[in-house]
């Protein structure tokens, strides 16, 4: 008998389904999706739209964590990119220029992180902490301490618009997930990232440019954060250097870990990350709907994360397996 290996997305998916069911039992309206003016509305649609930014940041974070690192600066990069958008749009620049500049900002930030970690060998937490702290200040400088209101319908469309009745932002993010998946799995890049995370020395000795692969992960992560900054600014039609992207690095790390990618690096699960991000957004929305005060909102979040992580752990699995012994096929 050969026991089937449990898919790494089993527990996060189970958590998501359980949470949705819980909501549905509490309030049947939760699952209701209506068509209004040819647009889809409803709580599930909301969750997808609001969760799209975390999903995006978590996508980049997945690759960084797979290489055995972590990027704490993503929240600040979101703020900087938002600030860049606001200033450029205010100055009358076109949408294309604005987008390119925002994503370029992310690429630049990622390159700085990549340089520190991969080339200079600074510990990832320390290296990205620098930008996490300094980045907010940079964002403040760009907007000169103001909250800049953005008045550009085409820019706002990115976060709040609908394409054929479906919200645009989640569509965009899902397309990016698919593209990333293919780029990683149809080429050898995915294998190389996992190898570097699993044993960097061995990867290098086998002829891999390990530093380059690592730097690439940070650069990609920066670009994702840059684009998420665009979506965040478009969503509230303003650049808020203080609050934009606040705690986003934590949500992204949670999404990645809950999704089945180990913090120690190695194997990554992109689909798991998407589910993890949705799980966190669903929980946030649930608490909002239940009127849980924001001050204690982190507690259920923490409980959920501990729960899913425990269920994924081999040790706990063995322990649970001991409680309910499997029938041995002779």
């Amino acid at each position: 008998m050969k026991p089937k290996a449990k898919s790494p997305i089993f527990w996060p998916l189970a958590g998501l389904v359980a949470l949705v069911l819980l909501n549905a039992v509490h309030d049947l309206g939760f699952l209701k999706i209506t068509l209004l003016d040819g647009h889809l509305y409803g709580v599930p649609v909301d969750i997808l739209t609001q969760g799209s930014r975390t999903m995006l940041v978590a996508l980049g974070m997945t690759l960084v964590i797979a290489t055995g690192g972590v990027d704490l600066s993503v929240g600040s990069v979101v703020a900087i990119a938002g600030a860049v958008c606001a200033v450029l749009l205010q100055g009358g620049h076109s949408l294309a220029v604005t987008l390119a500049a925002a994503i370029g900002t992310g690429l630049l930030a990622g390159s700085a992180n990549g340089l520190l970690v991969a080339r200079l060998g600074v510990q990832p937490i320390v290296a990205t902490l620098i930008l996490m702290v300094a980045g907010r200040g940079v964002a403040q400088l760009i907007v000169d301490g103001q909250v800049i209101i953005i008045k550009s319908p085409s820019f706002e469309f990115l976060a709040n618009g609908f394409l054929l009745g479906v919200p645009f932002a989640p569509l965009l993010v899902i397309a990016l997930y698919a593209a990333t998946h293919f780029a990683l799995r149809r080429t050898a890049l995915g294998l190389f990232i996992e190898a570097v995370g699993d044993n960097e020395t061995a990867s290098r000795f086998a002829g891999l440019a390990a530093a380059r692969i690592k730097a690439l992960a940070y650069i990609f992560c920066g670009a994702c954060a840059g684009l998420a900054g665009v979506l965040a600014a478009a969503n509230i039609r303003a650049a808020d250097a203080y609050r934009a992207g606040e705690n986003m690095e934590l949500d992204a790390i949670f999404a990645v870990v809950v999704g089945g990618t180990a913090l120690t690096g190695g194997r990554f699960v992109i689909l798991g990350t998407a589910i993890g991000a949705l799980l966190i957004q669903t929980l946030t929305t649930t608490m909002y709907n239940l009127g849980v005060p924001p001050a204690i909102a982190p507690v259920p979040k923490a409980l959920l994360i501990i729960g899913v992580s425990l269920l994924q752990s081999e040790k706990v699995g063995r322990w649970l397996g001991g409680l309910w012994p499997k029938k041995e096929a002779a």
């Binding site: 149809r186 080429t187 050898a188 890049l189 294998l191 190389f192 996992e194 190898a195 699993d198 044993n199 020395t201 061995a202 990867s203 000795f205 086998a206 002829g207 891999l208 190695g266 194997r267």
Partner: peptide
């Protein structure tokens, strides 16, 4: 320390240097 990629499969370990030599794109 310098040889195996412990959590990757025998297949991935075995083709690893060849794939590295071919580069990212020629998977």
């Amino acid at each position: 320390g310098e040889g195996i990629l412990p959590n990757l499969s025998v297949r991935e370990n075995l083709i690893f240097a060849l794939q590295g030599k071919r580069g990212v794109l020629r998977a």
